[in-house]
Design a protein around this nucleic acid. Sequence first.
DNA 1: TCAATATATAACTATTCACTTATATAATAA
DNA 2: TTATTATATAAGTGAATAGTTATATATTGA
Lengths: 114, 114
Amino acid sequence: MELSTIEIEKAATILKLLGDKTRLTMVKMLDTNDYCVCEFVEIFKVSQPAISQHVRKLKDAGLVCETRRGQWIIYSLNKENEVLPLVASLIDHLQNQDFKLQELEKQGLRISCK
Amino acid sequence: MELSTIEIEKAATILKLLGDKTRLTMVKMLDTNDYCVCEFVEIFKVSQPAISQHVRKLKDAGLVCETRRGQWIIYSLNKENEVLPLVASLIDHLQNQDFKLQELEKQGLRISCK
DNA sequence: TCAATATATAACTATTCACTTATATAATAA
DNA sequence: TTATTATATAAGTGAATAGTTATATATTGA
């Protein structure tokens, strides 16, 4: 089976984007669950605009999709993305981040968006 | 078989490092051949200090090794690196860069270091 | 020993980046 | 309609980054 390869330049752009702890964690988390901005704000302990700016970059690169649900905007991994194979194999090497969702639930902050 | 996973923070550091077109190309090229600084200078059309600074960063991260051979310092991929599995699977997704070596040879600049 | 070549380091600069606060937009609920 | 909540955008700031030129260090060969 042939592996479809990616241009160096495009790959470098993706890696730069994911070479940030916050965004990389977001993508790892989005691999198993969807999240809204306010949940990320709780998880990452930074300002809401900072989170908005991070997800914007992920969206601009086509890595995530957004869906409005009432006043919340839910972000999910974009499974259609051309570079998904690269991103997926990368994510596989990362330590599981489920504990972040568990913390969120323990604080009763997960349900706020459902 | 279990895949050994990497801390998010460590992975983000590696991805930031490889989120640069020049360094990413270097690593892809080093996957199949060794190179010295002067060859990289020819290939990337930037100053010699710029190349030295790039390989220094790769070396500091443990991704490459250096071996002095006369007046040349040969760089190679460090196969002992803890994050090699991540880097290797990443490299697999990149377009082949052999044409750069071929150009170098066509210009008669490859042998200068042998 | 001395000139030439290869590489590294220092110092500087312009640009990018991640964050902040302030404010705008949008949806919900009283 | 109006207050509240969620999100986005604008503007500003300090730190990091990739490049440059100048210079130092190290090896080779005459």
